[in-house]
Write a protein that binds this DNA or RNA. Sequence first.
DNA 1: GATTTTATAGAACTAAGGTACTATAGACAT
DNA 2: ATGTCTATAGTACCTTAGTTCTATAAAATC
Lengths: 211, 211
Amino acid sequence: MIRENEKIFVIDDDESVRRSLPLLLKTMDYEVETFSSSEEFLNSKQFNGSGCIILDINLEGKSGLELQDELLKNPYHLPIIFITGKGKVPESVQAVKKGAVDFLQKPFDDEQLLKAVEEAVAKSRNWKKEFDEQMEAKDKIDKLTQRELEVLKYVITGMLNKQIANELNIAEHTVKIHRGKITEKIGVKSVAELVRIAEQAGIQPLYTKIS
Amino acid sequence: MIRENEKIFVIDDDESVRRSLPLLLKTMDYEVETFSSSEEFLNSKQFNGSGCIILDINLEGKSGLELQDELLKNPYHLPIIFITGKGKVPESVQAVKKGAVDFLQKPFDDEQLLKAVEEAVAKSRNWKKEFDEQMEAKDKIDKLTQRELEVLKYVITGMLNKQIANELNIAEHTVKIHRGKITEKIGVKSVAELVRIAEQAGIQPLYTKIS
DNA sequence: GATTTTATAGAACTAAGGTACTATAGACAT
DNA sequence: ATGTCTATAGTACCTTAGTTCTATAAAATC
């Protein structure tokens, strides 16, 4: 199965939308779940796969744009396709600037929606892949002690062991021990791999200021 | 001077806009140049600094959206702020999805515009910085011979010289010679720096398929 | 045709990275 | 108190990286 684990969440207070969209989406083999409010969606069990959210702007309680702001606080979330009856330019601009994949005005045709969904799901796959890699990298970095992390930040600049030792006022041998622990814990055998993993985890190299 | 070299390009067929916007922008110490059509802008001497473009959607000849498409073909271009009389949601969504910083409907107040300009200029600075770094990295990579580039792609995976030698069916010594040339030409002294520069230049590591 | 660039390689050497084994000392937990 | 974790370090050893000198051969350039 190609689209394993991909799911579309429809959030709209209009019952006719909650009836018709799933029918359309299921013909394209998407899994679908519907909600009538932002709160109902937020209270549902969190979904970690890829997919997207089709979200009405005008909702009772928390509006679509407010829900978007809420979701943006998470490090990982699903791409959003907004749908609206009478859309205004400023809110559509805001929504898209914050990463929404599309902003469709009712009535929209099926083709338009499916194209947007396809784009959103593709984006979701990429986001998820990047996020998973980032998490994996962070998990590895988390195994390091404070001192090891410090040494790592120097190692990924390309500094020599003796330079790092000098910077930290310790023996070169001790730096070697730390490096050994680092590569062992992270499970790599080269500086090149350390540089990549550190970058994925958002660790910045610690360059010494030239004095 | 803080905003050295930053310039705002106003492209609008409405003469009153071409008169009033420069006055406003110059109070904020921006350099400004105006054009009455896309063609006029495209024929002007190209600008390599940072800044932004304020662009009317509805222009005679090439429209604002068409000019945006044109500019997107370049590896480097200025961020765009669209202005329009009667904006429609679909075109505003398309414009922003393609990277436009904002989409303002006339009449807009000065504050709104200046905020958008500030954001656009900040984005421009980042883009320019990234672009310049990328160019610098590519220039360095361009000095390498085909074979050296090939070796580099293996080096940045973290492979040992003897593994690379085996992969290429040459002597380990030859790999060392190539590496020496690579680090000399690129002007670095460590694998870590090679990994960074290769990444900036868009060079992908060449992992050997595990057999 | 002569010169330069590129790719190759051996021999010999220095420097740097990495790994034992051993050891001390403070911090923290059971 | 006893054990584990962390950070430190010396000695000794092996592996890997990098350079120098020499050398060959094909390709490109002048």
